[in-house]
Design a protein around this nucleic acid. Structure first.
Length: 229
DNA sequence: TGCCAGGCCGGGT
DNA sequence: ACCCGGCATGGC
């Protein structure tokens, strides 16, 4: 529906003019992006950067480098990112999958369809919907929208979707109405995180000052409007 | 100081 | 099919 598309694009432009193009995801290689996607689960990016720095110093920001690392060393390296016991296991599961799937070379994943690849990623222990979509979009350049806690918070607080809206449904709000443009998807999610950090935290919402607000019809968007084609 | 951060899993209803 | 506790560090 055209109106929805204009609203969503307006929200994006509004945030982008305030924060500038973000150039996400920070990371040199697809592998590094994928590792960062695991490490940033429910975790401040500043802490993730510390962990990535320690991995780099240990020569473990490549598939072979990380495989060569013993378990204790891996856990110690990623400690600053928090949940390090869990995340070390998650990383090992991802490495196991990469090894069996593409000999550790993410470039070889190119010959699979996005939907198939998403299902495969979701089968990896420790990779949920947001992590899978982050890897697909930012590491592999697939056109899939990333939803996170901020996306959920912002859309529900502006009453654009119902409280009980699930991940896939939230994702469709964007994918059904935005042009299929990888660069737009990349920066849109980044802008949502910027807006969320500043205006839509867990306990404190500054909805009146939110850059998205000016593009929403007065009184909010009726739920049906965002969900129907 | 407590609250929060770019989730996900496993066990219990 | 949901609901919830657990997981851990560092910055404000």
């Amino acid at each position: 529906m055209r109106a929805n598309r204009e609203i969503l694009l307006g929200m994006y432009q509004s945030a982008r003019s305030r924060f500038g193009h973000q150039g996400w995801w920070p990371g040199e290689t697809p592998f590094e992006v994928a590792i960062g996607a695991i490490l940033t689960q429910n975790t401040n990016w500043a802490n993730v950067e510390k962990a990535l720095g320690r991995l780099r110093k240990a020569g473990a920001l490549s598939f072979e480098g990380m495989r060569a690392m013993d378990d204790d060393a891996l856990r110690e390296a990623i400690r600053p990112a928090g949940y390090f016991n869990q995340k070390a296991r998650k990383l090992q599961h991802l490495l196991d999958w990469l090894e069996s799937r593409c000999q550790g070379s993410m470039e070889l994943l190119d010959n699979a369809g996005t939907d198939t690849l998403r299902e495969e990623l979701l089968s990896v222990r420790g990779v949920g919907p947001e992590t899978a979509d982050s890897i697909l979009l930012y590491a592999l350049g697939r056109c899939t929208f990333v939803v996170d806690a901020y996306t959920f918070r912002i859309l529900t607080r502006h009453q654009m979707v119902a409280e009980e809206t699930g991940y896939d449904e939230m994702k469709e709000v964007f994918e059904d109405h935005l042009p299929e443009d990888v660069e737009l998807y990349k920066d849109y999610h980044a802008q949502i995180v910027m807006v969320g950090k500043k205006y839509c935290r867990r306990r404190r919402a500054l909805c009146e000052e939110c850059p998205f607000k000016e593009f929403l019809p007065a009184g909010g968007v009726p739920a049906e409007m965002m969900q129907n084609e």
